[in-house]
Design a protein around this nucleic acid. Structure first.
Length: 801
RNA sequence: GCGGAUAUGGCGGAAUUGGCAGACGCGUUAGAUUCAGGUUCUAAUAGCUGCAAGGCUGUGCAGGUUCAAGUCCUGUUAUCCGCACCA
């Protein structure tokens, strides 16, 4: 009677679909649980085993929660806008809409074949008009509040994809999509003012249960620093040069200043600058450097002294030179720094190269050799001399600056505003009209969605213009404000847009009047548990928290944080131990695994292969181990017999396993939960029999991992109803204990024997028992017992001299 | 450079947080079942040593604390992942 997994899995997948058991119901009287997994980008390659691992974790939690009586929302959708689809469309001539639909159908089919208990009634597709209508709505709200704005700046531009990229999309100076070099280009760009929410995003982390390393990455990404702004006056000119510093305490050690090549003060006073030619040449040189060269390659300091501009140190009146150098960037702080070479490594390098004075103001290092950034007594610092505590010194200086009106305390963030447009076709149109008379005007809410026009040619223009710019019928329109001739914004939103709020739409996916009903949001939010990839922990997770906090401030969502708990799964590596990639040819196709071993085996294996949060290589032979496990469960039917209660033989094993599996699932220790089930299975086969009560409990425990086979056995055994109607088994702490335990006996910390003792034995009795053991007696005889102790249920240690 | 993580048999990984290192699975070896292959079942499986009971050594490396250390402390090395001239 071998197990026909193909027929059984198909049968149950159909049953689940027909009965809709996994559909969440809007019954507000029930306790709810919202499990969220990152929705996939429906690529042409189909599902990856990584998707299976990512979804299997919360799949298990969801199935367990349902058995525990919760109303569970476990939705899925598709993050379908994006470049790969568009590039594929350009290559093949197939419309991206068609490509997307095909890919979504493929993914849907694959996900169903794995038996995931998603609520298929709530599928969200970010490219659906009914969905992006609300993405545009949120954008307009941001525009209304001044959080979406347009500005001209240097942007990261990919000449190959012909698209502007965010800093996040161009890390390492390479385009995230095609990996060619990114160059700097001046362009009009849409921004979302995420920096306004920097503090809220930081503080909100105190309220939520994210893994510590996830929190830390977000904190680093936001990069808040405390310090001071200080105004330096310029000699003979009525102008202040403002700097930002985290070390105002070292102000007496300033020997020069540096401004970024793009700093506006240069153009403003160009006629006073004696060496404009040299400065212009230097600026040209810098602008040619890619972001990559500027930040990654050359740490060697370059720069030019500005002849004619001399700054004055506000605390001691000293005159100091001003340089331009590209180690100072316009995008952070004020684009100008006060340089304290004695106590900053970068300034030290620069001073050494340009022969500038180095004045020690904090004792403790050897400034002949290197900059000293540690603590110490302040010297050469006027009224600051003698202070030894950095914190106090900084506070004292800020007080002084504030009092004299030459500066003030302040904060800075590394996080920059979010560049929010792409010159691409396959994205949400930005619902803005450019009117010569009225400027930028929002498309009226009642005209949403502003539909993406259906066109034949979606290739971007050679100058990096959006393909939409070529479509007159789309571009030409009337200004909603004055009725005059106007032109539409032709850029589209980046891929991050749709994924920034999708978890809200799941709650009310078919609502035509609002993005989601407030009462429903109140019931279902926040997401109780969100799991996804570590790679989305900074970008997507911060963006979506930002959008949610904005909506919260609008009063349209309840609670200030969207995700109560966030975890991340580790990668599945190829069998060769390195990241799976097509070029390496080490990609495992989940479909093939389902075909050969079945969905239950695939699901069990991805959770059993190692620590869920850690990367682990795929192993074909280990998959077989899980196959054996599944087959052995099937064969339990042969040895099952009547019985309404756990038998004495398996009593403690049953209770222990229920406890272990219940607890491990909550901590995402799926591998040890499965191991405990395997151990129990071994014990059952050793005992040679299992009764119905035990089999029922076992099937329930295994069900979240391997739902198809457990449902089938339940049905075949005539246990009544389906597993989905049952209740998660409970355990009794008392019954987890065995009557007797084996303890180790150590002499001087080395194990010499093992004995069985009653588990409730007293310390004295245990030690007495231990001494009776001949091997132990021989070692202790004639020696002084220094110490003897008993660790309950574990060991006895006798220390002799 | 800064931040984080990891390091345990032939392999993936366990270890109730200081208490029997190697659970569970893979692989391997031997045996049984089978015409055979596959499947299944039984036993062994950290290393060294010993005929054997046993002994010794073992959690990247070097120290330390403790009756007891994979776990705590000090130092150090390697690998991986973020961030990166952030003033």
């Amino acid at each position: 009677m071998s197990y026909d997994f193909k027929a059984v899995e198909k049968k149950w997948q159909q049953k689940w679909e027909e009965s809709g058991v996994f559909h969440a119901v809007d019954d507000f009287t029930k306790p709810k649980y919202y499990c969220l997994v990152e929705f996939p980008y429906p690529s042409g390659a189909g599902m990856h085993v990584g998707h299976i691992k990512a979804y299997s974790g919360l799949e298990v939690v969801s199935r367990k929660r349902r058995l525990q009586g919760y109303n569970v929302l476990f939705p899925i959708g598709f993050d379908a806008y994006g470049l790969p689809t568009e590039n594929y469309a350009i290559k093949t001539g197939i419309h991206p809409r068609k490509v997307t639909d095909t890919n979504i159908a493929k993914f849907t089919d694959q996900l169903k074949k794995v038996g995931f208990s998603f609520d298929w009634n709530r599928v969200v597709d970010t490219t659906d008009e009914d969905y992006y209508k609300w993405t545009q709505w949120i954008f307009l709200k941001m525009f209304e509040k001044g959080l979406a704005f347009r500005d001209k700046t240097l942007v990261n531009y990919c000449p190959s994809c012909k698209v502007v990229l965010s800093n996040e999309d161009s890390q390492g100076g390479k385009c995230d999509i095609c990996h060619s070099d990114v160059i700097q280009k001046s362009k009009d760009v849409w921004y979302l003012r995420i920096t306004e929410y920097a503090d809220k995003l930081l503080e909100g982390l105190n309220e939520v249960d994210f893994l510590p390393n996830i929190k830390l990455q977000q904190v680093n990404w936001i990069g808040k620093s405390r310090g001071a702004f200080v105004d330096f006056s310029i000699k003979d000119i009525d102008e202040k040069l403002r700097v930002y510093t985290t070390r105002p305490d070292t102000l007496f050690g300033v020997t020069f200043m540096v401004i970024a090549p793009e700093h506006p003060i240069i153009d403003k006073y160009s006629e006073k600058i004696g060496n404009m030619d040299a400065i212009k040449a230097y600026r040209d040189e810098c602008s040619k450097k890619t972001e990559f060269e500027r930040t990654q390659l050359v740490k060697d300091k370059t720069g030019v002294k500005i002849e004619g501009l001399t700054a004055v140190n506000p605390v001691n009146g000293k005159e100091i030179p001003v340089y331009i150098s590209d180690y100072v960037m316009m995008g952070y702080g004020t684009g100008a720094i006060m340089a304290v070479p004695a106590h900053d490594e970068r300034d030290y390098d620069f001073a050494k190269k340009f022969g500038i004075d180095i004045i020690e103001v904090i004792k403790g290092g050897d400034i002949e050799k290197a900059a000293y950034t540690g603590d110490g007594e302040m010297v050469n610092s006027g009224f600051m001399n003698g202070l030894t505590n950095k914190k106090d010194s900084i506070a004292k200086m800020i007080d002084y600056l504030t009092e004299k009106g030459i500066g003030e305390g302040g904060v800075q963030y590394k996080m920059k505003d979010w560049a929010f447009n792409r010159q691409r076709y396959w994205g949400e149109p930005i619902p803005i009209v450019h009117c010569k008379k009225c400027g930028m005007v929002a498309v009226p809410y009642e005209e949403l969605p502003l539909k993406l026009p259906d066109v034949e040619n979606f290739e971007p223009g050679s100058d990096g213009e959006s393909p939409l710019a070529k479509i007159d019928s789309f571009v030409n329109c009337k200004c909603p404000k004055c009725g005059g001739d106007a032109g539409r914004e032709t850029d589209t939103m980046p891929q991050w847009a749709g994924s920034s709020w999708y978890f809200l739409r799941y709650i009310d996916p078919h609502n035509d009047n609002e993005f989601a009903n407030y009462e429903k949001l109140k019931y279902w939010m926040p997401v109780d548990w969100y799991n996804g990839g570590m790679e989305h922990v900074t970008r997507h997770l911060i963006y979506s928290r930002f959008w949610y906090k904005f909506l919260y401030d609008l009063g349209v969502v309840p609670y200030s944080e969207p995700y109560q708990k966030r975890t991340a799964q580790g990668l599945i590596l190829g069998p060769d131990g390195v990241k799976m990639s097509k070029s390496r040819g080490n990609v495992i196709d989940p479909n093939e695994v389902v075909e050969e071993y079945g969905a239950d085996v695939l699901r069990t294996y991805v959770l059993f292969m190692g620590d869920y949060e850690q990367a682990a290589p795929w192993s074909e032979s280990s998959v077989k181990g899980c196959k054996r496990f599944i087959d052995r469960i099937w064969n339990l039917q042969e040895i099952a017999k009547e019985g309404n209660e756990f038998s004495e033989k398996l009593m403690s094993s049953m209770h222990k396993t229920i406890k272990k599996v219940s607890e491990d699932i909550e901590q995402m220790k799926f591998n040890t939960a499965i191991a405990a089930l395997m151990t129990l299975l071994n014990q059952i086969y050793d005992a040679g029999e299992i009764n119905y009560a035990e089999l029922k409990a076992l099937l329930l425990l295994i069900n979240p991992f391997a739902p198809h086979i457990t449902e089938e056995i339940w049905e075949k055994m005539n246990f009544g109803g389906t597993i989905s109607d049952q209740t998660w088994p409970s355990y009794d702490e008392e019954k987890c204990r065995d009557a007797s335990v084996e303890i180790a006996i150590q002499v001087n910390g080395k194990i010499k024997a093992r004995i069985n003792v009653a588990s409730e034995i007293s310390s004295e009795e245990a030690i007495a028992e231990a001494k009776k053991v001949p091997a132990v007696a021989a070692l202790t005889e004639g020696k002084t017992i220094v110490k003897e102790l008993y660790v309950k249920g574990k060991l006895v240690n006798i220390v002799v001299k």
